[in-house]
Structures are given as structure tokens and as C-alpha cells.
Design a protein around this nucleic acid. Structure first.
Lengths: 225, 225
DNA sequence: GTCTATAAACAGATAGAC
DNA sequence: GTCTATCTGTTTATAGAC
């Protein structure tokens, strides 16, 4: 795009570009290797080799294994996998079709990149064991959740539901998906694409019954005894 | 020499009992250590020390770290933590109270033994990475799910719902809980006790709306379109 | 049955060659 | 900027003492 100064790529890449590319390759290799072997189980040599380098290149770009892992955790959550929101963004004729197609798409995404679930699990375990890194991981989860929350907010007509409902529902939907994706890896037969859609249909149907109130009614009437 | 045959516990424990106790202590120590450090991150020396022994005792009772881990995975899932079903078994005046109390109890259980979620994550990761161990882990999950499925089946009046519904709902509820417990460790503020209850209320309300059919009606009528 | 001592392999990280 | 060689600590697992 932009000419760095005057002769951006006379032959191939500038030194800075080459280094940036190495760094990127190392990050991608690290993602695969950490997913396959875990944080403690993956060796720096293994990661470097997966990227097509040796340890020297790794230590030239990162302080060590831990920093590499943390960079991965804090890095772009959404430019590697289609986010939940993109999946949700499709348009479907009826609500039933919408949930069904959504469930199918979630499965497709989860089945396509088999590494993300184990990698997320590694992130989670690391955050649980290193409280100082928890904020970093929370931020990554927030990146994933935000578009989902927005989309749910659009789906629920404003005024008929409490303002904090989309956020709460986003948490539930996110937790449900993560849980089902994980269980599907163990028990594929018990976690079909159809079940994803059913669960969402149950959830949003119950949501409307339980939480909606007549339009224009400002204060929600809690009719429980 | 020994009066074991006739005087089983003249002083304290028989040799077999002592060994069994050592084995049990090692398993418990392994559970804590694997939860805290992970499978690859925990060393056998650390596990043995946590149990009050040295490596010799460990290798005298287990073939190695991997066998110890697998024994833990295949071992009793329910005699250490109160299962979901026990939580569900309580009685509550109204449905709303039931969901609220259930959500609170799930949080209490999850917060009380902070080790089970990381340990389950370790099991899951191991199973994903070692397909030959997946069946073992699936069996453990089955042990946890069975009572939940039974209880849900009791809650849904027979005849009004498809026969396979309790199993499907159990999967969804189980996934939902696992997902929320995990997210709560990262974002406690966003996953309150109340939200557990709300999610369940939404789910079961929607379930009744979507899946129930008039008593006596054999074929379910799909009224969407 | 458990502990101590040790063997052999491997890890993360660094220094200097190119 | 990356690679090769190496240093240092730690790991699993075993052998023999008690």
C-alpha cells in the first residue's frame, strides 16, 4: 500500500517487513503447537521448527516462551476465526431456520479450525493459574462477546426488555456454545448441529416469555410471589 | 511371621491397607497438583511431595505420571464432588425459587472446590490430544450426566415430550453450566448466581413452549412456518 | 513399601558465527 | 536476523539401601 520511504520493495522485503513476517509465522506456528501440545508441553524448538526456523529466530523476536504465549493471548482474537457475530449476521426466512442455520454454522466453524477450542482452553487454564494474565484473557473474551451482544440487542426490540439483558444473554449464549463445542469433541453423537439450534430456540423463546413486557411500560412488573 | 490372616489390624493397618491408603493419598495429591500445574507442568516429585512421600512411593504404586493421570480420569467422578443431580435434588416452593436456588448451589459447588474445573479442562485437553483416552473421559462425563438426565426426565411429564428430550436437555444444561463456570472464573461480575437461575428459567420455559404437546397426542405437531 | 542416589534425556535460554 | 553450539537446570525413571 504505502511506500515506506522511496524504494519500499526493490528486491523483496525490507528488513523490518522480513522480521515482521517471521514474527507472524512464529505466532501462527505457536498457535498450532500450543493447541497440539499445550503451553507446558510445547517446546520452543518445536514451535520454531513448525514455523520453519530454529530457536534463534524465536528468541530474536520474543523474550521467551511465556511472552510468545501471552502475545498470542492478547493478539487479535477475530482476524483468525470468523467471530460468533459474523455467523449470526446471516439472514434466514424464519426464526426456526435461523436457529437451525446458526447451529449448523457454529458446528462448521468449530469443526473447521479444530485448534481454537484447545487453544482457548490453554488460555483459560493459564489465566486461572496466573491471575496477572487474567485481565488479558478477559479482554480477548470481551472482543468475542461484544459483537454478539450487539446483535442480540438488535434482535430484542428496545423498550420491551431490560437494558442489561443483551449483555446477560450474550454471556449465556457464549457459555452455551463453548460448553457444547467442548462436549462435541468428546461425544459428537450427543451434540448434533440440530441440538445447537434447538438450544437457542428454547433459550430465546423462554426469554420472550419470561422477560418481555408490554411496549411502553417503563417499569418492569415482577409478577412473582 | 505375620498375623495378618487372623489378626487383621493388631496394631494399625495391614500392609495392603497401608498401600491402598498411600495410593489414595497419591491420587488426591495428583488431583490437586494437576489442577494447579497441569498434566505436563506437574512433576512426579511435586505430586509425591504433595502427598507426603517421595518419588519412590509413587513409582511403587503407579507405572508413571501418565498412568497416574489416567487412573484419576477413569476414577470415581462423583465421590469427590457433589454431582449436579444432588444439587438438583433439593425441593423448592416455586419454579422461580427452584431455578434461583439451583443457580446459587451451582456457584457454591464451583466456588467451593476450585480445582475441579481446571482438572476437568486438563482431562478434556488430554482426551482431545490422545484419542485412545477419549472413551475413558466420555465415560466419566456420562457418569456426571446420567443422574442429571434422569432428574430432567422426571421433571418433564412423560408423554408430553419426546422420549429423547431429557438426554438432549441434559447435554444442553451440562454444557451451559460448564461454560458458565469457566467464564465466571474470568469474569465473576458478568456471571452472577442470578444469571445461572435466569438461564435455566429461560431454557425450561422455552422448552415447554416449543416441545410440549397436548397429552395423548402421539405425533408432535410442528407449528412453525 | 518407601527412600536415597543416580542415570539419561530434555527443557529454556544465551553467546558467538555468519 | 537467523543459525549453531553450549550451558544450566529440571525431568522421568530406575537401582539399591533400609
Amino acid at each position: 500500500m504505502s511506500a515506506e520511504a522511496e524504494e519500499p520493495r526493490r528486491h523483496r522485503l525490507t528488513r523490518a517487513e522480513a522480521k515482521a513476517r517471521t514474527r507472524e509465522l512464529l505466532l501462527e506456528a505457536a498457535a498450532r503447537t500450543f493447541a497440539r501440545k499445550g503451553f507446558a508441553g510445547a517446546s520452543v524448538e518445536e514451535i520454531a521448527a513448525e514455523a520453519g526456523f530454529t530457536v534463534g529466530a524465536l528468541y530474536s523476536n520474543f523474550a521467551g516462551k511465556e511472552e510468545l504465549f501471552l502475545q498470542l493471548m492478547s493478539g487479535r482474537a477475530r482476524d483468525r476465526v470468523s467471530s460468533t457475530a459474523e455467523v449470526l449476521a446471516g439472514e434466514y426466512p424464519t426464526d426456526r431456520d435461523r436457529w437451525t442455520a446458526l447451529g449448523q454454522q457454529m458446528i462448521d466453524v468449530a469443526d473447521k479450525d479444530m485448534d481454537i477450542a484447545p487453544l482457548q482452553a490453554e488460555f483459560w487454564l493459564y489465566a486461572v493459574r496466573h491471575p496477572e494474565a487474567m485481565e488479558t484473557f478477559r479482554a480477548q473474551l470481551g472482543q468475542r462477546r461484544a459483537p454478539l451482544e450487539r446483535l442480540i440487542g438488535e434482535g430484542l426490540e428496545r423498550g420491551r426488555y431490560p437494558d442489561d439483558l443483551p449483555g446477560r444473554v450474550a454471556t449465556v449464549v457464549s457459555a452455551l456454545f463453548q460448553g457444547m463445542v467442548r462436549q462435541r469433541r468428546i461425544d459428537p453423537d450427543n451434540v448434533s448441529a440440530e441440538l445447537y439450534g434447538d438450544a437457542l430456540r428454547w433459550l430465546f423463546t423462554g426469554l420472550e416469555v419470561c422477560e418481555s413486557r408490554p411496549a411502553g411500560d417503563e417499569a418492569a412488573e415482577a409478577g412473582d410471589g
